[in-house]
């Protein structure tokens, strides 16, 4: 398998805090990687570094061998990195349809009307079609999370970064989400997924990475990682279901 993403000795400090401390990992094309870790472990910071929302203090990031460490986020999006935000960032006063349309159009450089079909299809899959004319800031938190996913999908990513999209979902909704993500994997999309809902993560990912204080705690086959004593300690008895 060819390497899609490589993160090489990347660090990010905020003042005296090392949010991400000399992390390295690779992601193969088509692979799904789960990232676990307590709050404040540096998971979202790592995503912001990969998506280009912030720049690392040290280290390199490559996408398909090309260095992207200092590219602005919009260029990374056009290279195929799509993301959702942990705290949803909808374009609040735009309609749900326009949120997805902006993503589809600007990520691909295509005109608006050429993207309509794709947007309608994605909104249908995300279960937001009946709300497509609503202003995004009138959505409930759960709907906003769906919109995060829909908007990321509309950029037609080859690498999808998902930041806690399963929190608060019912059992049935979790199953739907797992199906959506696994279907995406079937189309060759690679995924990095930060999630606290461990059983959802385990239903999708090939490999698991646990971060604490900006550093790796454990890495490897998901069930083996979850059985790791250090991981169990950090999660204080929260086990994989």
């Amino acid at each position: 398998m060819a390497t899609l993403l490589s993160v090489e000795r990347v660090s990010k400090s905020f003042g005296a805090v090392r949010a991400v401390d000399n992390l390295s990992f690779e992601l193969d094309q088509g692979e799904a990687l789960g990232i676990l870790g307590p709050n404040g472990a540096g998971k979202s910071t790592l995503f912001n570094l990969i998506s280009g929302d912030i720049r690392p203090s040290a280290g390199l990031i490559r996408l398909r061998q090309r260095e992207i460490t200092h590219l602005p986020s919009y260029e990374r999006c056009r290279l195929g990195i799509g993301r959702s935000y942990q705290i949803p960032q909808p374009f609040g006063r735009m309609t749900v349809f326009e949120n997805v349309l902006a993503a589809a159009s600007f990520s691909s450089g295509r005109g608006e009307s050429a993207c309509y079909d794709l947007c309608i299809e994605i909104l249908g899959r995300a279960g937001l079609l009946d709300k497509c004319n609503r202003a995004a800031d009138t959505l409930t938190l759960l709907e906003r999370k769906r919109l995060e996913l829909a908007r990321a999908l509309a950029t037609q990513p080859t690498l999808l970064l998902l930041d806690e999209i399963a929190g608060g979902l019912t059992e049935g909704e979790c199953h739907e989400l797992i199906e959506v993500i696994n279907a995406l994997r079937g189309t060759g999309v690679s995924i990095v997924w930060i999630e606290h809902v461990v059983h959802v993560l385990l239903a999708v990912v090939d490999r698991l990475l646990v971060i604490n204080f900006g550093k790796f705690l454990a890495e490897g086959e998901p069930h083996a990682v979850m059985a790791n004593a250090a991981v169990q300690e950090v999660y204080m008895g929260i086990e994989a279901e």
Partner: peptide, 21 residues
């Protein structure tokens, strides 16, 4: 669409491919 997206969330506008600068 780009301008309105920047108004509503500058960070997210970059993540969907909008050249904010």
């Amino acid at each position: 669409l780009a301008l309105t997206a920047i108004r509503d969330s500058e960070a997210a506008s970059g993540s969907v491919g909008i050249n904010q600068q």
